[in-house]
């Protein structure tokens, strides 16, 4: 189920991977079975995507253009292409470590564990969302659940963290189409059952052979007026990506 977690967590790949896995030959079965199959499927995947990230706050609004690569579940590389001021800033994540490259100073800066809950490049995603290597399948217990005003042809899966896992959510509810398993939304609740944030998936679009939601909107409910929207411009899956992309040397090399 790591894809689930990743969907929630890392906007870029996660949704892709999630979709990917959900589209796979998951059989009907209980929630965990589905999740497990997706997880296995995911592990062999790699991807490249070109996207826009629009960040909206009450005080400003801006759009970043990004290229993102992923390999396995533990490597991610993102480079900002625009706007001009940020051009060349890059983030490398390997397992649960993360580095930023700042071309203005020509320095690589490691993100300390204490900053993991901090915002990634001013968006509503946290560094943690990108980094945390959730062993989602291991960390959560899954089950179908009921929601208020359920929609037809939608399955609702409730993910509850197992005891003792370092997870900040009380539980997560994922809504997927019952035929395609494509995600519709994901809602994150705190321990008291209060909705903290949600991700909405929109705009089905075909990339290569796969049809996935091309827009993903993150709404943090504890920050009024804030939103982050990710739009996929291009995406490729299961492609060959050289390991050297995910290295500090590549990070430093700039555009």
């Amino acid at each position: 189920m790591s894809k689930f977690s990743r969907v929630s967590i890392f906007p870029v790949f996660l949704s892709l991977l999630l979709t990917l896995s959900l589209q796979g030959d998951a059989e009907q079965g209980d929630a965990k079975e589905i999740v497990k199959k997706m997880d296995e499927l995911y592990r062999s995947s790699s991807s490249f995507a070109s996207m826009e990230m629009e960040i909206i706050t009450p005080h400003w609004q801006r759009t970043l253009k990004l290229d993102a690569w992923s390999l396995g579940m533990d490597k991610t590389f993102i480079r900002i292409l625009a706007p001009k001021k940020e051009r060349g800033i890059a983030t490398l994540r390997i397992d649960n470590e993360m580095w930023n490259f700042l071309p203005k100073t020509n320095k690589v800066m490691k993100v300390p564990p204490s900053m993991m809950m901090g915002s990634w490049m001013g968006s509503d995603f946290t560094n943690d969302d990108l980094v945390k290597e959730y062993t989602f399948l291991d960390d959560y217990i899954f089950g179908f659940t009921e929601v208020d005003n359920p929609r037809e042809n939608v399955l609702y899966v409730k993910c509850t963290p197992k005891e003792g896992r370092p997870i900040i959510w009380g539980h997560i509810i994922i809504a997927v189409k019952d035929d395609s398993y494509l995600p519709i939304w994901q809602k994150y609740y705190d321990e008291k059952g209060k909705l903290m944030r949600e991700i909405i998936y929109k705009d089905l679009k075909k990339f290569g052979t796969r049809e996935i939601p091309a827009v993903m909107e993150l709404i943090p409910h504890n920050k009024k007026g804030n939103r982050t929207i990710v739009r996929y411009v291009t995406a490729e899956f299961n492609i060959k990506i050289g390991k050297e992309i995910f290295s500090l040397r590549n990070l430093r090399s700039g555009i």
Binding site: I55, T57, H59, W60, Q61, R62, I80, P83, K85, E86, I89, N100, L102, K104, T105, K107, M109, S119, M121, G122
Partner: peptide, 18 residues
């Protein structure tokens, strides 16, 4: 020593300098 600072500008831009 050189110190690198990464923050966010009031306009939302990524602030960084040394």
């Amino acid at each position: 020593d050189e110190i690198v600072v990464l923050s966010q500008g009031a306009d939302g831009s990524i602030a960084n300098d040394m």
